[in-house]
Simulated scan of single mutants.
Amino acid sequence: MSFDRNAVADAIARHGPVVRVVVADTRGSVPREVGASMLVWADGQSGTIGGGALEFDAAERARSMATDCALTQVPLGPALGQCCGGAVTLLSERFSAAPTGDIYARPTGNTPMPLSVKRLLAQARNGATPPRPQMVDGWMIEPIAPAAAPLWIYGAGHVGRALVDTIAPLPGFTITWVDTAPDRFPDQIAENIRALPTPDPAAAVALAPADAHHLILTYSHALDLELCHRLLGHGFASAGLIGSATKWARFRSRLLALGHTNAQISRICCPIGRPELGKHPQAIALGVASELILSVRSKETANKQTGDATG
């Protein structure tokens, strides 16, 4: 669980200053863990701290905050009539800009930085594992999440929509959704998704960063092939193609004829997802989402180990 700087910056860009409510401490049985958070603005919110009544009450208090920071202790049974029986401490903060750095440490009141917090920050600077979200002697500490991984999805059909619905709520990804025309997309698209209608989706590959993840699932095999061809010449973190073993065998031979090597072509995964889950769009989406999460986490772990070895 980390401070999602990208989500805060995006919400500010869309709505102006926002209030972030984070679970700072817990006692007993509670809906969510320390570090769970939500963002609140005048006419909306995103994320969740769980609990239904807890979340509703916290959002109302966030919208009426008279200060930039407030710490609230909530006994779930007596205060809200919830059956969890525990208690949560919520830290609500107003942001007009997202914080910088790798760790966000701030007082919950007027307490000067104690030695315990200085030690935790020093350990993190020296290469130790970043501290988990926690309150320490009147200070709230949270690691700031790494930059979100860019994910490009080509195709707004049933599988494309299932993928977007599944992945968009997850932290750690920024989604660019590509298809041939505006009417290919649903009427309502989440705010954190960039829809890119273009008559030539393959040309959009040039706009993607070289470290982006790509998922290809258009209505056209010819377009799918052209997207694979363009990606192999462009560079990518990962690429996946929907299709059968027969489709992929034909694509491999055609990509070889276009000048790509077997090693390059093998970087494209086909089929995508977890075949044992079935071919239902939501089943494909679940398999793809789990593989993406594991891939990104594996890269973050490798980067951390490299940093530890060279630090």
Rank of each mutant, 00 (worst) to 15 (best):
M135S: 15
G81F: 11
C84Q: 06
G86E: 04
M135C: 15
N110T: 10
G50R: 04
E142V: 08
R20P: 10
T48M: 09
W139F: 12
G35D: 03
V88N: 13
A145F: 08
A36V: 10
E142P: 12
M38G: 03
A147S: 14
R27Q: 13
R125K: 15
F95V: 00
I144N: 09
V18M: 07
P143R: 08
N126P: 01
A59E: 11
V40K: 09
G86A: 09
I12F: 13
V19S: 11
A53L: 10
Q123A: 15
A87D: 04
G138M: 06
G138S: 06
V34C: 07
E33H: 07
L71I: 00
S116Y: 03
V88T: 12
P146H: 02
L121H: 04
S96T: 04
A53Y: 06
T89C: 03
G51A: 06
E55Y: 04
E55M: 02
R119W: 04
P131V: 13
L71Y: 12
S64E: 13
G50A: 04
L39Y: 11
A124K: 09
T48A: 12
V18D: 05
P150S: 00
S96A: 12
N110Q: 14
V18I: 13
T72Q: 10
R94L: 05
V18R: 06
R132M: 12
A128T: 02
G44M: 11
D137M: 09
R132Q: 14
P99Y: 05
D25L: 02
T48P: 09
P114T: 00
E60L: 11
H15S: 07
R125L: 14
V74N: 08
I103Q: 11
A58E: 02
Q82W: 07
R63W: 08
